[in-house]
Design a binder for these strands. Structure first.
Lengths: 162, 162
DNA sequence: GGTTGATATGTTATAGAGTTACATTTATCA
DNA sequence: TGATAAATGTAACTCTATAACATATCAACC
């Protein structure tokens, strides 16, 4: 058990499910889910938090799967491009997607105390941003929505999360 | 005249107004609006687009106002902390605020073709994100909202903007 | 009006994030 | 099986950002 979306859950089965979904998606779309790509996703899923590229690279290096930055960045590019992982811009870090395969615009709630990250759903075309865009004639192709604050566990005085 | 929020405007007077507002705010709040800080804000206002810290630093260096990264970063920290400038996370770049002094959560529309940036208003406590936050008990303190796409000028076939 | 404590600046060095370029290998598919 | 495209290995480098410490400047109080 670990923290996801600030709640407890069965980590092993959530990891298995995500990997299975990605495998299925890759098979269906003829994408190469190579050992490095799979391993990077596994690392992100296992830690279940935002990780820097070099932190991931350290793990890869320990396992003999590649030691230079491009190895990690290329795998991350693949995962991000296909929606299997997301980049948290505020942290220059990456996190596994909680529902890979589905087309979506993620929004993140990031705890500034324990670094836990929850993925929510954004709809950039609606709300303020959508209105501002359509008012000015701007066409939104991609949106980054990230909120920084305190997660429920850390609000309850406890820094005993994470 | 230049491009702001994808529209033409009187650049000189917009710059004067912003500087005056910041000066007034600093006087009222006993903040030191020092030469370096002022110059960095002027540079951002003059270019009226997102600029990297090192691009700003190059200008400072040419003027003998400091040549090392911390000089630029410290000035930018001051400007960002007090809401006189904003950081565009997706670009690792900074831009002058279009309405300094007012407490607000900015949202940005970034053109991927000409790099023009328009500042809009976000209300993180409302909409999807706010609902996701209150549902889980997360308290939002700060939000980053950035949309990438095509500005009206670039949509009209013309890459003739910026 | 000088002393003190806080705030701002100058400078060196280094850490962290990401890319370019090119050689080599491994898949894919005709 | 041979041609082509996709993926990996590796070295070198650029860009972004911070740590640490010395010096200078400001604010304000006796």
């Amino acid at each position: 058990m670990d923290t996801i979306g600030f709640q407890k859950h069965d980590h092993a089965s959530c990891m298995r499910a995500a990997l299975a979904a990605v495998e299925a998606y890759c098979a269906a779309h003829k994408l190469q889910f190579t050992p490095v790509r799979r391993r990077v996703l596994e690392i992100l899923l296992a830690r279940h938090r935002a990780m820097g590229a070099y932190e991931i690279l350290d793990t890869l290096r320990d396992e003999g799967l590649g030691s230079q930055p491009p190895v990690a960045y290329r795998a991350l590019d693949f995962l991000v491009n296909h929606g299997f992982a997301h980049k948290i811009e505020q942290l220059n870090a990456f996190i596994a997607c909680t529902h890979p395969g589905e087309d979506h615009t993620p929004a993140f709630l990031i705890c500034r105390n324990c670094d836990a990250v929850a993925e929510a759903h954004a709809e950039p075309s609606r709300g303020m941003l959508g209105r501002a865009a359509s008012d000015t004639g701007f066409s939104i192709e991609q949106a980054v929505v990230e909120a920084l604050g305190l997660c429920p566990n850390c609000r309850r005085g406890a820094s005993a999360c994470a």
